[in-house]
């Protein structure tokens, strides 16, 4: 079937199989491999993208459902050639280790901040609860989101005794 949708401001029209997931459409048909698959079952959030303003697990959506949708993926975050403010904060606050959960995490945070420009720590935790990260223990991610929303300046220190 034929679908037309907008991803990161660019319109795409493609013939797709009806059972094509949005995740595989983005990764394999369009080559936007920044969005990752961690489980294929909607549990880990590595495949999070923003569809019409809401975060979705793209592994659980069919591309066929997305005709006419406006979709945002990680590739749209630095199209100007510069890191976004939130990406900068993740960079400065060591909020990235292996990086596999990072694109989905950034998408969840982006959707949060759009709704709530000054989220509390608990609100940040709730917003990223569906994004598993096995490396960081989340703390430096939460600190980065605080920094990216102007609620923190300095890197939290390792205490040397």
């Amino acid at each position: 079937m034929k679908i037309t949708l907008t991803i990161n401001g660019r319109e795409y029209t493609r013939d797709i199989a009806e059972n094509r997931t949005l995740l595989r459409f983005i990764r394999e048909d369009l080559g936007l491999t920044g969005t990752k698959e961690g489980c294929g079952a909607g549990e880990c959030g590595a495949c999070t993208v923003i569809v019409n303003g809401k975060t979705m697990n793209s592994c659980l959506m069919l591309a066929a459902e997305c005709s006419g949708a406006v979709i945002e993926t990680i590739e749209g975050e630095s199209e100007s050639g510069e890191l976004s403010k939130m990406q900068q904060a993740f960079h400065k606050h060591h909020a990235v280790q292996c990086g596999f959960c990072t694109p989905g995490m950034i998408m969840s945070v982006k959707a949060l901040v759009k709704k709530n420009p000054k989220p509390t720590v608990h609100q940040i935790q709730e917003a990223i609860e569906g994004n598993f990260c096995r490396c960081t223990g989340y703390t430096q991610i939460i600190e980065a989101v605080q920094a990216g929303t102007d609620q923190r300046d300095e890197q939290e220190e390792l205490r040397r005794v």
Partner: peptide, 21 residues
């Protein structure tokens, strides 16, 4: 010194290619 990691820009922009990609 807590200098910035050398691998995070690629990871933050979705440009880092993993084997699955």
């Amino acid at each position: 010194k807590g200098v910035d990691r050398i691998d995070t820009v690629e990871k933050l922009t979705g440009k880092a290619l993993y084997t699955c990609d």
